[in-house]
């Protein structure tokens, strides 16, 4: 790559950043996201990791209301809910982002192959895509998680491995259109290889779509993780927000009106999902000028 290409790429990245900041909804999303990232990064400053252990709450009152000592009260085994929520940001962000990376990589590669190849390879890719598109997610994820283990990483891989189909379909559609462009025909006549055409003409054409799609997969992945955790998967002693909610539900915090136990993780999930959705929608508007003015 020449340095000119990188200068240009930096310039266009700056332009996207500027447009993103001038978009009010995106700004809200960015601020929210910054808040959650700060939470995840500063969690150790506020609470030791050991406070997530069952033993940590032994000497604390169970389900205590918020106080000077416990800003957000305690859970049903006496752990500090504030510590759980701070550390939960790490788990939720980690699973959400890792799952997205997995989904985007699988979706992009399969979408490119399905769109660019012809004949049986294309049909096979499309069949795989259709298969994953119609699979009921929750039962599949539960079975896979039970088979493969329930660590956050495994959970992220399971979510990512089942979340790529929609994006793959989008990318395939765009590649189908790019493949027929005159400049692809010219490149073929030029003696260019398929690899060259894909790298030089097709991937740059779908890159904005991949990025915008990725930011829209994140909220889905985070919600999926929360759902699975709420249904009982995941690690109680390295809890995501969904897992904290499960604890609250199981201990009857809702009937006991222990709002400090279920409200903070619930609001965090909503906030993080909202943040990524706002940013994703704004990126889509920036990359796809046809949506402007709608």
């Amino acid at each position: 790559m020449s340095s000119a290409a990188w200068t240009r790429r930096r310039a266009s990245a700056r332009r996207v950043w500027r447009q993103l900041r001038s978009d009010r909804t995106a700004l809200v999303g960015l601020i929210l996201l910054a808040l959650f990232v700060t939470m995840a990064l500063t969690a150790p400053l506020f609470a030791e990791r050991t406070e997530l252990q069952a033993a940590a709450g032994r000497n604390n009152p169970d389900l205590a209301a918020p106080s000077g000592k416990f800003w957000l009260g305690t859970d049903d085994i006496g752990r500090d809910v504030f510590a759980l929520v701070m550390w939960g940001a790490r788990v939720s962000l980690y699973i959400g982002l890792l799952a997205t990376v997995v989904a985007v990589v699988i979706g992009s590669v399969l979408g490119l192959i399905a769109g660019y190849s012809r004949g049986w390879i294309s049909r096979l890719m499309l069949a795989i895509d259709d298969f994953f598109l119609v699979l009921p997610f929750i039962p599949l994820a539960i079975v896979l998680a039970l088979l493969l283990g329930r660590s956050p990483t495994v959970l992220a891989l399971v979510i990512g491995g089942t979340f790529w189909a929609g994006g793959s379909r989008l990318i395939r559609a765009q590649v189908l259109s790019l493949r027929e462009r005159g400049y692809v025909e010219r490149a073929t006549a030029l003696g260019a290889s398929n690899r060259h055409i894909i790298v030089r003409h097709v991937v740059p054409g779908v890159a904005p779509l991949i990025i915008a799609n990725a930011t829209l997969i994140v909220p889905g992945a985070i919600l999926a993780e929360s759902t699975l955790a709420f249904l009982g998967l995941g690690d109680r002693f390295s809890p995501s927000w969904g897992k904290v909610l499960e604890g609250a539900q199981a201990s009857g915090a809702l009937t006991l009106n222990a709002w400090w136990y279920y409200l903070p993780p619930g609001l965090c999930i909503i906030g993080l999902v909202l943040a990524f959705t706002l940013i994703g929608n704004a990126l889509e508007r920036i990359f796809d000028p046809r949506l402007v003015g709608r």
Binding site: G182, A189, G191, H201
Partner: peptide, 20 residues
């Protein structure tokens, strides 16, 4: 691939669409 353009090159119609 070597012969394409190396020995015979094409000036396509509608340069608009043939340039990226």
């Amino acid at each position: 691939r070597a012969v394409r353009w190396g020995e015979a090159a094409v000036v396509f119609q509608g340069a608009q669409h043939v340039l990226n």
